[in-house]
Design a protein around this nucleic acid. Sequence first.
DNA 1: GTGATCTACCTCACCGCTAAGAGATCCACT
DNA 2: AGTGGATCTCTTAGCGGTGAGGTAGATCAC
Lengths: 165, 165
Amino acid sequence: MADHVDLVLAQWSERRPDLDASPMAVMGRLKRLATLVDGELRRNFAAHDLDSASFDVLATLRRSNAEHSLTPAGLMRSSMVTSGAITQRLDRLEARGLVTRKPSETDGRGVQVTLTKAGLDLIDAVLPAHVATEDRLLAGLSTEERTQLADSLRTLLESLGDKTD
Amino acid sequence: MADHVDLVLAQWSERRPDLDASPMAVMGRLKRLATLVDGELRRNFAAHDLDSASFDVLATLRRSNAEHSLTPAGLMRSSMVTSGAITQRLDRLEARGLVTRKPSETDGRGVQVTLTKAGLDLIDAVLPAHVATEDRLLAGLSTEERTQLADSLRTLLESLGDKTD
DNA sequence: GTGATCTACCTCACCGCTAAGAGATCCACT
DNA sequence: AGTGGATCTCTTAGCGGTGAGGTAGATCAC
């Protein structure tokens, strides 16, 4: 069996036999898979009038604590986007009435972002379909294979210094 | 050991114990890793006045055949972006003198995109550093682990219908 | 040959993110 | 108490991508 990346590797060995392109076997598939998965998930989000960015924020708030509340800085650390992106995501969510922003009581610079009832209801409604979609996308792997794959990816993430915070 | 995704999974089991969030063990890491890797590679590209999009096109042309030549449609199939994105990428590369566009001789609708000497020189200069960066990012995995990881990812890609073309 | 359909490439309005930096506040240290 | 550096949030210009759609040429059925 051969996938797109196998073809790419064969082409490189044909055109640049001096080049050891083997890292692409992992990296190429990683990128390709992430793009494919993103597209599939987007379809599910769209069915609920959401996009990945909004889902990301709502889900992070939902799981963070019993108050469903975080600061923009906390959201930024969790999401791997810049502070400017978080501001804009919150603008959109606030305009839709899914989150509220209120000044921190303890830190004059800080803001507390909290899920509204509508935001909580929405994310709770979307979550089951979301994990079901992810599960469907993983249908090609057995439980053991999934565990093994998750372990390899974690090893890699840790070696790259991915933080727990 | 625990990475960011382990924390996320622990949070979900705390806040929504009814939800089986296990697919996120793979999907969350996939996304996180792809984002991290993209950022690292971008730094390398920037050192050569490139970005991922331009590199993608130049590399695809470089490996495709001895003439370093493809149609926009071929580039689109290889790259997973829309036709509009390919047009704009080619506009930028053509303006920099890295590729040429000429009408197809056999198909009045078609265009043939070819690497110029400058484009060929540039991509050949960037490639070694690129694979070296990818290799460095994989340093946390042994050769066997890399092979096993690549195999799992291929299985997944094939199960999702990723094409060889 | 004609009309319907498909394919290739491009155009453009819109959108979300980045990068750079501004302004305010907090904090450690002296 | 004062100062300098770190942190928090927001602003904005610019960029690359999507999605919808347009035009021209190719292809197919009849």
